[in-house]
Design a protein around this nucleic acid. Structure first.
Lengths: 129, 129
DNA sequence: TGAACTGTATTATAATATATAATACAGACA
DNA sequence: TGTCTGTATTATATATTATAATACAGTTCA
């Protein structure tokens, strides 16, 4: 896979793994139904324990980002807006929290909106293969 | 103080305490140089250990949100944009990450901008007393 | 002055979270 | 039939979180 772990990062390893794979999925680098490395394979690549990978995969499956098939492998889940209704609320709540702090730090509304436009320009709607 | 801990929350207690006090500060409910409860006092109110409060306060002081004076108490720090330069980068990075996921979940740019406008309308520039 | 309060520090202990290690089982596949 | 999958279990080690019990130095105020 195309990411590395950062051992100076204070987050648990399985959280870093989740974040990296999520980024690959939402950025469209990994396509729907594309296979991701097996638990053992990725463990070897990152030189960490397979159980840690398994925990990350299990979480990602719960969040609806991947699915696993016994004896076949793990794959990117096809997009399904309704798959995780709670996640949207969570993200909106986090978004508001961050914006509130930016207000406090005197970041202008224009600057904040500029960031939104930037992200949407860069990652705007793409075909999901 | 005007908040409670949620023991179902998976975050550590000291993180919840930090988040709650930070919210009180950035929302302007707590004013500059206003005194916040003493370590022991808040510990008693929340029925948790004083050391846990102390850890939260220490972190908040490091982040420039409060300051403590030996034998006198802990107080809300006057706003200082330059106090924590790294924090802005961190927030911007988190903001982009959340927006990227919202893009993936088919939330429109208009919806995202509406959230920004809402937060700025609600918490827009106020006098810092 | 002295009692009661402050922040801060230290040491010990317990509980929980995280990570590793070693196996095992059942199904897919060539 | 090997070799690969996901998944599960048990054990162990380490780190993080939380509690508990004290202690010290400085303030506030009756």
């Amino acid at each position: 896979m195309m990411f590395q772990l950062d051992f100076r990062d204070k987050r648990p390893l399985y959280e870093q793994i989740k974040a990296n794979i999520k980024e690959l999925i939402i950025s469209g680098i990994l396509k729907s139904d594309e296979r991701i490395p097996s638990v053992r394979e990725l463990a070897q690549t990152l030189t960490i324990n397979p159980n840690t990978i398994q925990k990350a995969y299990k979480d990602l499956e719960t969040e609806g980002l991947i699915y696993s098939v016994r004896a076949k492998g793990s794959f990117v889940a096809p997009f399904n807006a309704a798959a995780n209704p709670a996640r949207l609320d969570e993200l909106m709540s986090e978004l508001e929290k961050i914006l509130a702090e930016l207000v406090y730090l005197n970041v202008s509304q224009e600057q904040a909106i500029a960031v939104v436009r930037n992200v949407y320009e860069k990652r705007g709607v793409k075909a999901r293969d």
